[in-house]
Design a protein around this nucleic acid. Structure first.
Lengths: 341, 341
DNA sequence: ATGAAAGCGCTAACAC
DNA sequence: GTGTTAGCGCTTTCAT
């Protein structure tokens, strides 16, 4: 059952059926009605492949993430998909697990499906792949790590904004010995968070003791290990800020094992605000990087490029702010309180 | 750059290029080599829309879930996608949020993309939608709730297997007063779990006091509320089995607020084994329903139907076993222990 | 073993 | 405002 069948039964041409289906306003309403009736009656659904082939528009966006089981991503996928559907786009999802081979195959699949844009929410993309997409003028959007060139947008995360809030929040609670557990420092995003922490501390006149900075790996196990390291140091922090929530959850887990109560004995702050942050005990105070907002920015960036005829010569830049959300893993520093008494 | 361009440059016909790309074995190896070289050189990627249009095969499977942010689903999506890619299939993901309108639009999109099969991992599908897919002979796979008819597979969950293990585990730990927090009982899957619990208890000679059965809603908040209800009853359970992990996490949260220690004062068992179950404190003993296995079964079911020329008249049935995984939220009933002393 | 050619279902000129 | 028609890029007979 195809457009010709509909045309025949509605006694119009296929062109008219096409116009009706695509809601071209110039068609005679009566005729349109007749066509719709036949469409309903026969349960006709236009064939997307044919449409894509002839129009040259696939109405598909690629979405490359590292790992859907990483709690940071589900909400992004959710929102991205919801917006896409509103715009009559489909999404081609791909998890790469940080594997360059899978990344390459993802890009290949996306090119074969002639995606109209790709959101890359991983730690960048190798030059040859970029090149393949670039010659086809496929709009791309990255988070922080995109190259400056036509058809490439970048969403810059304002780490400082939220991290400064976190530091000042702890300072207000009389914490002075504040540790920081970073992510893998070879990651640009992890490094940026650490830098923002140091800068925020400097702003309030504290020069951080290097002993209070340990490197984690953004996993729970890494958080536990990093915190264990911290406990062996001569100075004991009363608060710790973590480079992501999973790390913070690791800290909480290790604290629990060692009979360190949170927030009584130790205040903990995470980063990301993954959903799980609300479910741990106590609920985790964390720096939110809105996944919904990120998804929306990414989609809008692609959409903008699709609708542009000429690209900005060195891409477009967007900014996503981060913000502290207060929950129950931080508290007034009891040591300081006693001192005041 | 299309197949003709390649053909011209390799001085062969388009038919030969097509054969080469599709690895038809009869082509002269030399010629094939020549064609591959040109393909590499020009960076040619076949156009999927054209392929789908002419071959009538989209190489897409639909995957309908209720909500990707529900921790039960990410791993399913992950595994389903990975297997699909291995078979050179793409997946069309859709979250319906239990909204019939979104479900309808999902199905429409899938039909328009001419998916070759749909895995429906929600609580069923309304008859009219089923009908649309049925007339097109689109293979479907459901979990528990599929109708018996051609082109429809069903994955039956063996709830009893794991729940019986849970009950016997608790019994072995000398628990006698075991509560059960169910899911919404209008859900077939929730009801089945409750029935399996009752049956398992009966098997070991315990008739469950109705006061020990409360209805939750499969959310953390619901778990907290249900447990609060339980605490107001005259009899106090020493162990509680929950219809899913989020409910169990709610119980843990509420226990924490009320100074009830887990597992010292109360043993808790969940269901599903979502990833978070490993991260809560203490790690949750739970009945695993392997998400990876479920995804694999679903994919295999669709693939089998795609390759079948005639469908089984009343569909095919698959079974997924559940199993208890021991972690740290269960312990010997201390009351019973004292009694023995 | 290879090539010529007929479409797959649709859109978009272009003509009326 | 509506119809005719030429493709979109590919696969697949059918000849050779």
């Amino acid at each position: 059952m195809d457009i010709r069948e509909i045309a025949k039964r509605a006694r119009v041409s296929t062109a008219t059926v096409s116009r009706v289906v695509n809601r071209v306003p110039t068609v005679n309403p009566q005729m349109a009605k007749r066509v719709w009736n036949v469409i309903e009656e026969l349960g006709y659904y236009p064939n997307t492949s044919a449409r894509a082939l002839v129009s040259g528009r696939s109405r598909i966006f690629g979405l490359i993430i590292s790992d859907i089981t990483n709690p940071f991503f589900p909400e992004i996928v959710q929102v991205f998909e919801a917006i896409a559907v509103q715009h009559r786009y489909e999404i081609l999802l791909s998890s790469t697990s940080h594997d360059p081979v899978r990344m390459e195959s993802s890009v290949r699949r996306m090119i074969e499906r002639r995606v109209e844009g790709v959101a890359v929410l991983t730690f960048g993309m190798e030059e040859p792949l970029l090149e393949h997409l670039h010659v086809r003028e496929v709009p791309l959007v990255f988070v922080d790590v995109g190259p400056q060139r036509p058809w490439v947008s970048n969403i810059k995360i304002d780490y400082l904004h939220g991290i400064r809030q976190a530091v000042q929040h702890l300072a207000a609670l009389r914490h002075e010995v504040i540790a920081f557990i970073s992510g893998p420092l070879k990651l640009k995003s992890a490094l940026a968070r650490q830098q923002a922490f140091l800068r925020s501390m400097r702003e309030i006149g504290i020069e951080v003791d290097p002993a209070l900075m340990v490197e984690g790996d953004h996993t729970m196990e890494g958080g536990m290990a990093a915190f264990a390291q911290l406990l062996e140091k001569p100075i004991r922090p009363t608060a710790v800020i973590c480079s992501n929530d999973m790390t913070a959850i690791g800290v909480m887990r290790k604290s629990n094992e060692d009979q360190i109560s949170i927030p009584q004995d130790l205040s903990v702050i995470g980063f990301d605000d993954i959903r799980m942050a609300q479910f741990v005990i106590p609920p985790l105070t964390t720096i939110q990087m809105s996944q919904a907002e990120l998804a929306r920015l990414a989609f809008d960036a692609l959409m903008a490029d699709v609708e542009r005829e000429a690209p900005a010569p060195s891409g477009t830049e967007y900014v996503l702010k981060t913000n502290l959300v207060l929950r129950q893993s931080t508290r007034l520093n009891s040591a300081a309180t006693q001192r005041i008494k």
